[in-house]
Amino acid sequence: MKITIEKRANKEGDKQNIRLVYWFGSYTDSQGKVKHNRKIEQLGQYLYTNPKTKTEKQHNKETLQLVEAIKAKRITEAASGQHGFTNATKTNASFYPFFAQIMETKKTNESSSNFKLWQACLIQLKRHHPDEKLTFEQITPDWLEGVRRFFETQAKTKSGNLISKGTASSYFNKVRAVVNAAYAKGIINRNPLAQVAGINPGKSERVYLTIEEVRALVKIECRYDVLKRGFLFSCLTGLRWSDINKLDWSEISQFDGVHRITFNQKKTGALQYLDITQQAFNLLGKSEKQGRVFQGLKYSAYMNMELLRWCMAAGIAKHVTFHAGRHTFAVSLLSNGADIYTVSKLLGHSEIKTTQIYADIIDSVRKDAMHRIPDIGL
């Protein structure tokens, strides 16, 4: 942070009001122009523009001495951490640039998913507070509460739906991480998070289909054949929409008598080898040497609506999204005796605890099945 003295002429032009300007670094706006972050402190002092008398000249001299003393005091206060300021090198970082610095540390060769979550969080945060001049001085408990409410009740996905509770929790945790990092580095001397609670992610319902429901979908016509093939392919392979959408014929080969997909997961960036069944291979259509397999597959509102309509036509009343295909694959394998470690590898999970949610579903299904045994009159 830098502090300068600024003189501003009054309307009459006979006097100059004096103020201190606190400079908190700079940033580049969307048009590529450099903008400066600053704060103004009015001192209630003035100088005569053209001092003529001895009294006016003495006034100007004493006033300038006073202002210089105030400036020196403010510099000392800033260095000692008073008023939320710290040393000059640290306070040069305003909030968004500092957020970006922390975000860059999350970019790794092994996984891009966490970095993309940080990017998505920053996009949502700027929708809530679009002013690029946001400084740490503005990061108060009230401001954080506003961000918290925005993530919980207003932030939306590309398709216009509110983000999930889990996503809201993840985004707010990233904001918390940035504020905590600023506190740890001494950029702020009081942590506003001490008064702000996090967002409880809760347990979101995993919608999946039974094998009978999948068979019913096979028999029903879908308006978009590529959507039908893509969704059923997900049910049989566990692939995410993003990986199915970018799947290229060059990634499909034969290995040891079976068809194999070798690809980098879109979400994690990790290389995965996935052997698929013949019926899954049949859903790919006419084999080509290269090019997108599921050409025409799009993430759009009308495709999502058609997926729901198709499911309803098959007698399925669940709120089915494309990701339900992945859930269906996992639950189907576990229900038929596959061990959780194998399922975790097939899904491309980096941690077994991520797959545990499906095991919990199976336990619930088994418990429900036990209570369906009819009364035998005992």
Rank of each mutant, 00 (worst) to 15 (best):
L193N: 08
E41M: 05
I123Q: 12
G44E: 14
I252N: 02
A280F: 09
W249S: 06
T328I: 08
Q31N: 14
S335N: 12
H327Y: 03
L284N: 04
V258K: 15
Y273P: 00
G84V: 01
G198E: 07
L247A: 06
I187F: 04
I139C: 07
L144N: 06
T4C: 03
F322G: 01
D339V: 07
D142K: 13
V196K: 13
F322V: 00
K61I: 09
N92Q: 13
K219L: 08
L239E: 06
A359T: 14
Y46W: 15
I70A: 07
S159M: 10
N282K: 15
V343E: 02
S30G: 04
G257D: 15
G257C: 02
D275M: 08
E213C: 09
S112A: 06
D243C: 06
S332V: 00
S164H: 00
E251H: 12
N282F: 02
G257W: 05
R215A: 13
A197T: 14
G44A: 05
S170V: 10
I276A: 04
I139A: 05
K52T: 11
S159R: 14
I18V: 14
P130D: 14
T328D: 11
L232C: 00
A216M: 03
K174H: 14
L346I: 07
D360P: 04
T76C: 08
N200C: 09
E205N: 10
V147Y: 14
Q272G: 03
R326G: 03
G44M: 08
K133L: 01
A155S: 15
G269D: 04
T355M: 08
S350N: 15
L227S: 03
S364I: 01
T277I: 05
H349P: 10
R260V: 15
V178F: 08
F98D: 11
